[in-house]
Design a protein around this nucleic acid. Structure first.
Lengths: 344, 344
DNA sequence: GTGAAAGCGCTAACAG
DNA sequence: CTGTTAGCGCTTTCAC
């Protein structure tokens, strides 16, 4: 791979001149420019970005620190980041914490967790990235993360505990509210909820949205209508079974994610009832299952790509020296209507 | 961020000495080493990897070129790569071609495709990565990709057309063979197949495996038992419907992926038959649906992480100057037995 | 308009 | 054992 020096020699000019024609920042006579360009065409010259980075103290690389690339929303978020960065000539250095295997999903045990994160952050800083995007795999508040000294850090799919830090996430509460509203507008009065793990913020926010819609509509929420699952298929089966065994079973079940909704399908099928004629079911997340169940599951789609895109955009802005007016962005979700509900 | 020069000044030695204590390649007197280490502790010194890369002409960065990060097997493959690289101090520069959005899955139209790939490859080479892993999203033979001049390239989840190139993929044919065998061992004699797109190599290889098992067992394969779908849920519904309408309907259906198997579930349910009592169904890919259907779907799990890990391992070997004895690795899959089949 | 020279932070001969 | 020196390939004053 040829260097500027060789191009310079080949065209009988100095390296400075070659640099000038390449950068275009300084005017060069048309004739020499032509000569230089020709030499470049003749050889396999490639600008050495490493040397340039060293000189400029800027790598044009963004560090993307993901909790786990296999986390459900993560690939789409990264894709959104890529889409944004692609247009602006930045590249992505990916650091995959692999939390799913390292902490077996028990990663709320902060001590270990923050250690791993801060080490990942450090590695990225050592690589001299220009900025960092932290991509979470569960929507929540994040604390205890070491703020890099000299480069910006933005959070995607989670909120930093410090409200001054910029974070981009989605609207859990309102989405659950809207979904519950949809059911209520279809004249359902007995709407039960199958929640995720009680200690996750997503579950609590979605619960708040559900409650608000029910309250507003003046509908009662008997305690036995709130069932706590664990986000997994089997808890959906179980809790839906319990719901169906009630003296006054619900006419609609809102499962807080699609696998648990799929569990409802199994329990309901087993009980001999039909979806949606006898009972309506809705989910959350719009995973692949939602369209592969029969009947198709009405659910809510998260704005994952937009989260990534927006996070990258805001990072780029900070790199340009701008300050983000509203550091916390909450993007809306979209309800995907399929065939799992029917008005009463 | 402090530099070696500052550390040297602070400890009253030369930068060379600082470098020596840091690298450990040359012996340094305990007293000076101690002094240098102390200075480092006092400041926020960080080795500048950019400068080191420039000097050494080696970045310790692997370029990972993915066709689309949202492609189903891709995150797991990348995870496998990360797992391997994590242990050896390499970092990953991720280049996401985003083919799903750019080519709308019509990416077999080679002209555009190879242009995009080669551009991505170029970007990675320009960044001076030490090696490249190409991660495909559909198992197939890949041709027309420009071989980088001075760095190794290995293929994951696909085979290079040139048998000299190293590629790591999985055993489509044998997996389909084994799955069909499983059905046959359960005394199924009428085993129908719902294939994916006829022009995909995965579909053809899986077909070959199925045929071989049927032939070996002396079972006939009437042409109406081979149905061509398009990998999507709806084609599963449709083709299973056609199968059930046959004069002699199959007792088992092998769908070439899980969404099509889910489609079978819908068609079978609609026809009033039961899985697995009346008819057995199996899928392929072990997607999330497989465990969220009722009854749980027996399917085959792909060794995605292993593919990534092995690819990275082989790349690292080539970086160490070793040559790979058998450039083409084909990893076995694993059948996941659930509740969607029953012996006759 | 062009080029000489300095230097980004580091490593590796080579001398002493 | 320690330091001097020469660069890796590039950008950028600053003269000419």
């Amino acid at each position: 791979m040829a260097t500027m020096k060789e191009i310079a020699a080949l065209s009988g000019v100095s390296v400075a001149t070659v640099s000038h024609v390449l950068s275009g920042k300084k005017s060069v006579s048309p004739s020499t420019r032509e000569r230089v360009l020709q030499s470049i065409g003749l050889t396999n010259y490639k600008l050495n970005t490493i040397a340039k980075s060293l000189r400029m103290n800027k790598t044009h690389i963004i560090g993307v620190l993901v909790e786990d690339i296999c986390g459900l929303p993560v690939p789409e978020i990264v894709d959104g980041i890529n889409q944004c960065l692609e247009e602006s000539g930045y590249q992505v250095l990916l650091s995959n914490l692999r939390l799913l295997q390292k902490l077996y999903n028990q990663y709320e045990q902060l001590s270990q967790y923050t250690g791993i994160v801060n080490r990942g952050l450090q590695l990225l800083e050592d690589a001299r990235v220009d900025g960092i995007i932290y991509v979470a795999m569960h929507d929540r508040r994040i604390d205890g993360i070491h703020q890099p000294v000299s480069i910006p850090l933005v959070y995607a799919y989670a909120e930093s505990g410090d409200p001054a830090n910029v974070s981009v996430t989605y609207d859990n509460e309102n989405s659950a509210y809207e979904m519950t509203r949809l059911l209520i507008r279809q004249n359902h009065r007995q709407v039960a909820l199958i929640a995720g793990h009680a200690n996750t913020s997503a579950a609590n926010r979605r619960l708040t949205g559900y409650r608000q819609a029910m309250d507003e509509a003046g509908l009662p929420v008997p305690p036995e209508y709130i069932r706590w699952g664990d986000w997994e298929y089997h808890s959906g089966v179980e809790q839906a079974g319990a719901l169906l065994a009630l003296a006054l079973p619900p006419t609609a079940i809102f499962a807080m994610n699609d696998p648990m909704a799929a569990g409802c399908y199994a329990a309901i099928k087993r009980s001999g009832l039909r979806i949606p004629e006898d009972i309506s079911v809705v989910g959350f997340d719009n995973r692949e299952i939602a369209s592969c169940l029969f009947p198709g599951l009405t659910t809510v789609a998260l704005p994952n790509k937009e989260i990534g895109h927006t996070a990258a955009q805001q990072l780029l802005q900070r790199l340009d020296g701008l300050t983000i007016a509203t550091p916390r962005t909450t993007l809306p979700c979209r309800i995907i209507r399929r065939d799992s509900t029917l008005p009463r």
